[in-house]
Design a protein around this nucleic acid. Structure first.
Length: 453
DNA sequence: GTAGCCTTGACC
DNA sequence: GGTCAAGGCTAC
């Protein structure tokens, strides 16, 4: 693959939006931000913000507040250590391999965009890639044991009384925003993510196991623990079943809604404690979650089927299996069609041998959607998405050696998004006909989205 | 202080 | 020898 000398130069400076002149201190920036960063670090400048440390930094206003400009430089990932203490001119620094790798990734992304498979809802399918991978992840996760033919609600757990919290109360009010850039782990991760190629030689990759970008490792570390999730949700369902028995048996549909609701709680908890997301302001966290909750929920269900499910059955979050034919026979035409499309997607992902690492990346791609309107920290969210795409691309290239696999994942993500919209519409119609239990997170999310539309 | 252009020098 | 990311210079 050829890498033209101008790869990335058409991009905009992540600090001020001006034209990029090259890689400077860790990433592509414009000439003025390069100079500003150099002067600040070399001369050990200390700035003070006259406002609330939230000043706009763009091409026309970048001179107004050097404090916020410098904070933004650090926030987007400019590296203090790239400024030479000895002021030696010329030569190359340790970031050389990182820049090279970043160029390669950008070039690959451009190739995929040209091929029509990247960030598109309707792009033509790329070449399918059957591949075989044997990845051994040595993390804490244990596969879900099959619980076929066991009673639905069997777990014993503490039965604290249930109060449905709102999304707002689930997110911390002290989550910091743009003022706490310094020492943020973000810049650290920027380097680690981009530094993967060099990292293999410098110890960023674990000596055992597959070559896995550090960012993908972190996504796995943040990921929901399936066993804990199963215990938690089973306990909650048991509690609900007891409550409902006093008022008559709950319908299967109601139990499914409750299951989805509880999974949603866990998804919010996962997001809240995840890398990058916890750095966002609560307002942005809410906007992102309101926008993508159904996609995350569906991704959770689909990934469970692909990773642990059996053909012809549906594996529930509680660990129980339901015969697909049984489910379909009890569903109306809309739900049956949704299940059918869901199964087709599961099949596609199964053929592609999509693994936990890739699902973990997909969830972050879903969460960090820069197309969500009125985001306060749009640039950060966009940069996170780029990093996730880069890490996923790198991982898929390392494990499958096929560019088509990455494109396939993105196509499956498009299908998942489209499916989740249909599922939301279905759920909303059921809600309007009072068939969905009220006063839960599921309904709050449904209302939030429909109030925008 | 800013920012555009110039010089330098390790790496390919 | 070309490239390009460092630091330097200087008009504004």
């Amino acid at each position: 693959m050829e890498f033209g000398p101008d790869v990335g130069l058409e991009e905009l400076c992540p600090v001020c939006g001006d034209k990029v002149s090259g890689y400077h201190y860790g990433l592509l920036t414009c000439e003025s931000c390069k100079g500003f960063f150099k002067r600040t670090v070399q001369n050990n400048k200390k700035y003070v913000c006259a406002e609330q440390q939230e000043c706009t930094v763009d091409k026309s206003q970048r001179k107004r507040c050097p404090f916020c400009r410098f904070q933004k430089c650090l926030h987007v990932g400019m590296r203090l250590e790239a400024v030479r203490a000895d002021r030696m001119r010329g030569g190359r620094n340790k970031f050389g391999p990182m820049y090279k790798r970043d160029r390669a990734l950008k070039q690959q992304r451009k190739a995929l965009i040209r091929a029509g498979g990247f960030r598109t809802e309707r792009g033509p399918p790329l070449l399918p890639s059957a591949h075989h991978r044997d990845l051994t992840f040595t993390g804490h996760f244990q596969p879900v044991p099959t619980l076929h033919n066991t009673p639905l609600l069997v777990a014993q757990n503490d039965h604290t009384s249930y109060q449905p919290p709102s999304l707002c109360s689930l997110l911390p009010s002290n989550s910091h925003g743009t003022t706490q850039y310094q020492c943020s782990p973000f810049s650290n991760w920027t380097i680690k993510s981009e530094h993967c190629a060099a990292g293999r030689a410098t110890g960023l990759f674990s000596p055992q196991g597959p070559r896995m970008p550090q960012l993908v490792r972190e996504f796995l570390r943040c990921d929901l623990d399936e066993v804990q999730l199963r215990k938690k949700i089973t306990a909650r369902l048991l509690q609900e079943q007891k409550r409902c028995e006093e008022q008559g048996n709950p319908s299967t549909f109601n139990l499914m809604c409750l299951m989805a609701d509880q999974t949603l709680f866990s998804i919010v908890e996962w997001a809240r404690t995840s890398i990058f997301f916890k750095q966002l302001k609560v307002s942005d966290q809410m906007k992102l979650l309101h926008s993508c909750w159904s996609e995350l929920l569906l991704a959770d269900i689909i990934s469970r089927q692909v990773l642990y499910g059996k053909q012809g059955s549906v594996l529930l979050v509680t660990g129980h299996e339901m015969e697909l034919s049984d489910v379909a026979s009890h569903a109306g035409p809309t739900l049956a069609s949704l299940i059918q499309r869901g199964q087709e997607l599961v099949e596609k992902l199964h053929i592609q041998k999509v693994d936990r690492q890739e699902f973990a990346c997909i969830k972050f791609l879903i969460l960090f959607n820069p197309e969500v309107k009125q985001l306060e920290d749009h640039q950060f969210i966009e940069s996170v998405q780029e990093q996730v795409e880069g890490a996923l691309l790198e991982y898929t290239l390392d494990t499958s050696q096929l560019l088509g696999h990455f494109a396939h994942l993105l196509l499956c993500l498009s299908e998942l998004r489209s499916l989740s919209r249909l599922a939301e519409d279905y759920l909303y119609s059921k809600h309007l006909s009072s068939e969905v239990p009220c006063n839960n997170l599921l309904i709050e999310m449904l209302h939030a989205k429909h109030s925008w539309a």
